[in-house]
């Protein structure tokens, strides 16, 4: 994983509430045995019609959405299944952060393990982003802050350990493996 510090990009806005993992990546794309290429299936049923043609009215198909690396969505983003394919698809497509007023637990955990920053902001801050699709934002992971379209700065919570992993491009497994002795002791207590 690449270390992440600061992201400067424009936003893509999907203002819907409860965007579930079946929308992010439908079940039929879960038949793979590796992680690569899932970006093609991202939001597939919203992006393409039944014949596989792009729907011109869906935000990801608009020219101004190209190259944007932050997705802003309505409340409770990522609810539903535990499929890590959801963050894999978002990352494969090119997203580096998701912003909402609430992010589902398992999705948040999965996102953190894949270099996708789950950012929860106050409703008023998200409302500013939703009102200005395509706005340029600056996300500073170290400061845990997002610069909003009106120039104001909003901060977001993130678990300290997850933040450390993201900023240094390391994963949690190394830490768990280093606990071998403690785990063995726990197991010995039977």
């Amino acid at each position: 994983m690449e270390p992440i510090r600061v992201i400067e990009t424009r936003t893509v806005v999907i203002p819907r509430e409860n965007v579930d993992t079946d929308q992010i990546i439908p079940g039929r794309f879960l038949k793979v045995t590796d992680k690569k290429g899932l970006g093609k299936g991202l939001f597939s049923d919203w992006r393409y019609d039944a014949d596989g043609k792009p729907r011109p009215d869906f935000v990801l198909n608009r020219p101004e959405a190209q190259g944007c690396r932050v997705l802003v969505a309505g409340d409770n983003f990522g609810c539903g299944s535990s499929r890590e394919h959801a963050p894999w698809a978002l990352v494969d497509y090119g997203f580096q952060a998701v912003v909402s007023t609430r992010i589902a637990d398992i999705f948040r955990n999965n996102a953190l393990k894949n270099g996708l920053i789950p950012i929860v902001l106050e409703p008023a801050a998200v409302a500013k982003l939703v009102a200005a699709p395509g706005a340029s934002v600056r996300i500073d992971l170290g400061a845990q802050s997002v610069t909003l379209p009106d120039g104001s700065v909003a901060t977001f919570p993130i678990d300290g350990f997850a933040k450390y992993c993201l900023m240094n491009g390391v994963d949690e497994l190394g830490f768990l493996l280093s606990q071998d002795e403690a785990i063995a002791k726990f197991e010995a207590r039977g």
């Binding site: 539903g80 299944s81 535990s82 499929r83 890590e84 963050p87 398992i106 955990n109 999965n110 393990k113 894949n114 994963d171 949690e172 497994l173 768990l176 493996l177 606990q179 071998d180 785990i183 197991e187």
Partner: peptide, 30 residues
């Protein structure tokens, strides 16, 4: 699998995890 919650019916703390965490459990049981 998110519906791991089912097993809570027995008074077990049961929850769904992602594939990275499946790897963590396989490698460390934690």
């Amino acid at each position: 699998d998110s519906h791991t919650a089912t097993h809570g019916a027995f008074g077990a703390l049961a929850f769904g995890i992602g594939t990275s965490e499946v790897g963590h459990v396989l490698a460390t049981q934690c």
